[in-house]
Amino acid sequence: MFLAHVGFVVRHPGIPRVMLGELQKPGQGAAKKVMQATLNHYRQTVVGLLKRGIAQGQIAPDTDTEAAAVLYLGAIQGLVVQGVISGDIRALEPTAPRIFRLFRAGLQETRHDSTS
Rank of each mutant, 00 (worst) to 15 (best):
S116C: 13
G53N: 04
Q58D: 13
L107E: 09
L102K: 11
L49R: 02
Q28D: 14
P94S: 07
R43I: 05
A37R: 05
Q82C: 03
F103Y: 15
P97G: 13
H41K: 14
G7M: 06
T115A: 15
V81T: 09
E66H: 08
Q108N: 15
P61A: 07
A55F: 09
D62E: 13
L71V: 08
I85G: 03
T95S: 10
R101T: 00
R11P: 04
H5G: 06
R17F: 08
P26C: 04
R52P: 08
G74L: 02
K32Q: 15
T63I: 12
V80K: 03
R17K: 14
Q58S: 10
A37N: 06
K51R: 04
K51N: 13
E66R: 10
E22N: 03
Q44S: 12
Q36D: 12
G48P: 04
I15A: 14
R104Y: 04
V34M: 11
P94R: 12
N40F: 11
E66D: 14
T115R: 15
R98N: 04
A31G: 08
D64P: 07
Q36S: 11
H112T: 05
F100N: 02
G83L: 01
V34K: 09
E93F: 05
D113Y: 12
K33I: 12
F100L: 08
G48W: 01
Q36E: 15
P61Y: 06
Q77C: 05
A31S: 11
V18C: 10
